[in-house]
Design a protein around this nucleic acid. Structure first.
Lengths: 146, 146
DNA sequence: GCTAGAAACTAAACATGTTAAGTAATAAGG
DNA sequence: CCTTATTACTTAACATGTTTAGTTTCTAGC
């Protein structure tokens, strides 16, 4: 007898289901990003910066779902590539404030159509109602304290 | 005007919602695994091997949602640590067949109770019905072709 | 004001993710 | 048969994930 008869099978395992679902959703987005030499993480950072304006790195980490050490590293190359700028906050010198540049915004703008098309495609296949239901459930799951 | 007024905000973005939900679910599992010096990926591989018996590496990659190069690397250390064994298939010499060892099974067995407790906790907070609904929707999303 | 603690970030080490390229074995076509 | 394509896997290079430890700056309590 295998141990698995006691553990929930991977087929209905929540962590793996979430991972697989994400792979499905990300596949076309990765295709899009690969064409413009940018990673999924950088894409998320650009979107957060465009959405929130100038923010500190911790906020980026939280909003883009990254760890601070990753943010430090990624921003270093993004700054070198001219997609963002950084400056020390004068009130609290521990803080580094980050802003998106025009070059960064261009990347968003140039891929806006493709990005929307991918979302629409998924929505068309799943249905708006089910998609909203899924987002609600995911939000609820995030709120679970473990 | 920011670009974001055109793109769906990250707050209701499916990729990020999936990522955040996964972080929530994995947090306690990572805590459990850190105590026994094993990674999340190795845990998934052990579970797949326990569930399916002797399989080839491609199957592990597919079932555990990993890429083949990652599997190659991870199995190398798992073999060195005595958690799995590998042998070349005699019929098709391209294939490498992988088996879980007793030591590998022990890891599963020793963490079975904790693993179940975590699942139960999430189920208790979300409710069985909603959890099933979520798993159904995730399965449906995986089936979407993009 | 001083000091202990916390917060924001950085650095480093190791594991994994991801892509591209390469090898060996098999399958498919002609 | 023989060539070509495909499959299963490996290697390498670079990016990110993850943990631990360290630095600087701020905050709270005394």
């Amino acid at each position: 007898m295998t141990t698995q008869s006691h553990i929930k099978s991977t087929a209905r395992s929540l962590p793996i289901a979430l991972l697989r679902a994400r792979e499905t959703v990300m596949a076309p987005i990765r295709d899009m990003l690969q064409g413009i030499q940018i990673t999924e993480q950088k894409w998320r950072i650009l979107r957060v910066l465009d959405e929130l304006g100038e923010v500190e790195q911790s906020t980026i980490a939280h909003e883009a779902c990254l760890l601070l050490p990753s943010v430090t590293r990624i921003l270093r190359t993004m700054e070198a590539d001219g997609q963002i700028t950084r400056r020390q906050d004068s009130d609290d010198k521990r803080r580094t404030m980050v802003t998106i540049t025009d070059a960064g915004r261009s990347i968003l703008k140039e891929n806006l159509a493709t990005s929307l098309a991918i979302s629409s495609d998924i929505e068309a296949q799943m249905g708006r109602e089910k998609l909203d239901q899924l987002l609600d459930l995911l939000e609820e799951l995030q709120a679970v304290k473990v």
